[in-house]
């Protein structure tokens, strides 16, 4: 999956406008990155990548780039 495709997937997961996210963005600056989005992220990772995302791993994410690196 290309980085562009991953970003599109994340935009759907975060429920934000197309083009709203990029790899350098700090998660703490994204208003939509709340507990519901984190749950959506868990579901998406399992469905799309077969990965079980733990709460510890979520805590480790600081930027959109960190999440993109996990999406493999």
């Amino acid at each position: 999956m290309s980085e562009k495709e991953k970003i599109v997937l994340l935009e759907e997961t975060f429920d934000v406008e197309e083009g709203a996210l990029n790899a350098d963005m700090q998660l703490e600056d994204i208003e939509e990155y709340d507990s519901m989005t984190k749950l959506s992220l868990i579901v998406m990772m399992e469905e799309e990548f077969g990965k079980v995302l733990t709460s510890e791993e979520i805590k480790g994410f600081k930027t959109i780039g960190d999440i993109l690196n996990y999406m493999e």
Binding site: T13, M36, L39, V43
Partner: peptide, 8 residues
Amino acid sequence: MKMMPIRS
């Protein structure tokens, strides 16, 4: 039981 927002 799977916790998920309606969007997922």
